[in-house]
Design a binder for these strands. Sequence first.
DNA 1: GACGTAC
DNA 2: GTACGTCAACGCTTT
DNA 3: AAAGCG
Length: 300
Amino acid sequence: MIFSDKIAYSDKILFPKSGITKGKLIAYYEAIAADMLPYLKDRPLTLHRFPDGIEKKGFFQKNASDYFPDWIKTIEVKKQGGWVNHVICDCKETLIYLVGQGTISFHITLSRTDKLDYPDKLIFDLDPPNGSFCDVTKSAQILRSLLESELGLTSFPMLTGSSGIHLVVPLDRSDNFDSVRAFAKNIAHYTAKVYPEKFTAEIRKEKRKGRLFVDYLRNSYAQTAICPFSARAFENAPVAVPIGWDELQNGIKSAQAFTIDTISNRLKYKSNPWEDLFRNPYSLDGAISKLENLSEKKLV
DNA sequence: GACGTAC
DNA sequence: GTACGTCAACGCTTT
DNA sequence: AAAGCG
Ligand SMILES: [Mn+2]
Ligand SMILES: [Mn+2]
């Protein structure tokens, strides 16, 4: 079934240097929809639109436009001093319609619509200072090991398609955003304390001094992270890809290792590395006290 | 990208 | 009819 | 209160 029959400007080039048109992007999302929709379907959506291509200024969009067709599902989400009417993308038709709007990237909340104050994911967003992906992989392994061995938390990595990596820890939705963020913040500062030349938790760029920023702030109400399999607004249209730890240690050399052209081949021979993501979701109770003990030991 | 308004 | 301007996020931290 | 940041 083709849903792209009413799309305006399918031949418009959105990625000038790689020559990718809106039609090509639609073909990608048509093909990836079945893999992507499970991550999109029950979360408020934020669009990153580039109707005039990636070389022109794009914009984020949270509110559904007035003119969006009425078959597109939306949800009212409370914000400071008001409400935001987010799209819920729960089917291929909606996904393709939004690409038709010039959407290149899809960003999702860390909580689901039925319990918005309680995230089902904790995300460590590792933002490298200047490319150097090798540093990111090593740092990701260090953080993984801290979470796994010291705190008993299994994490799942994703190439963001931009420059960094996300480490995702599944949660059982017993901790609210403020608790989860406080925990993530403590870990970020702990890594910066133990590896002062490698990690930083500094929000201000000028204070990072070439170190990897452990961004714990994604873990906040109504804040977002790139959706698995979303394309990104960079030449060649790289995509966000869940990966296995073995792959990260071995072959992968870039956060943009896969594009809308190469991802399909990978999916053919690689089973889902995130198969067990929600098999064992955590409450953070145990990990919080373990981290307190760990931090005390380090302080003495 | 869609829409309203000016010419 | 065409051209052009306008609009399309938000929460947390730091200063 | 405003700027920086993602
Ligand atoms: Mn990032
Ligand atoms: Mn335009």
